[in-house]
């Protein structure tokens, strides 16, 4: 089990179970963690992490463009989220490059996000969307960390470095959840 698990989601919308039972977030669920079996699988998971970060970055930037409708705290939060996601993406891309795999261009994901973006999202909707972004990212990294820790494969990239990077990012996501929750409660 990974160390440093300090975040306990406070959102009433998405509830996670205790680690041993939290495969699908339902009470009594059985842990079905499948270890990461190869460089290829690890690269694919990092690509998905990059896409999730790009979705956050694109949606936060899109939300922040509606600055005249947002309170100051919200606008700052969205800008910080976009910046943080860009940083996470770059860190994941460094690992991905060492695995000799391609990243997913941000412009491509930004285009897909724009195509689906609903322009009429209300103020609460924006914060809720941001909360989902942060919680989803946290959950994803948590699962990936567990799947790497369960693996005995020797990757061509340093396993400890991968884990350190993912744990760092997961902590940022946990902080992000708390920031959004605080703002929603105000």
């Amino acid at each position: 089990m990974s160390e440093g698990r300090t975040y306990v989601p406070t959102s009433p919308t998405i509830l996670y179970d205790a680690p041993t039972d939290r495969r699908d977030g339902r009470e009594g669920a059985v842990s079905l963690t499948v270890p990461v079996g190869s460089d290829h699988q690890l690269a694919r998971l990092l690509q998905i992490g990059i896409v999730l970060e790009e979705v956050v970055e694109a949606r936060s930037t899109r939300h922040a463009r509606r600055a005249d409708e947002l309170e100051e705290g919200v606008e700052q939060l969205l800008e910080a989220a976009a910046t943080e996601s860009a940083t996470h993406r770059e860190r994941l891309e460094e690992l991905l490059a060492e695995l000799d795999a391609d990243t997913v261009p941000f412009e491509e994901i930004e285009r897909l996000v724009e195509a689906q973006y609903e322009a009429d999202e209300a103020f609460d909707g924006i914060l809720y969307d941001q909360l989902c972004n942060e919680e989803t990212a946290y959950k994803f990294y948590d699962d990936v960390i567990e799947a790497i820790e369960a693996s005995d494969v020797t990757f061509s990239v340093d396993r400890e470095r991968v884990l350190e990077t993912l744990v760092d990012i997961r902590e940022d996501e946990a902080d992000g959840v708390e920031d959004v929750t605080r703002l929603m409660e105000q």
């Binding site: 979705v55 949606r59 994901i109 989902c132």
Partner: peptide, 28 residues
């Protein structure tokens, strides 16, 4: 991601991509 072997890889990823993550991927 334009993965040719998407069926095989979907089965491998199923355990790591839960419904909260799938919901986000569903937005694009």
């Amino acid at each position: 991601l334009e993965v040719e072997e998407f069926r095989t890889e979907a089965r491998q990823l199923e355990s790591v991509i839960d419904e909260t993550v799938a919901e986000r991927l569903d937005t694009i």
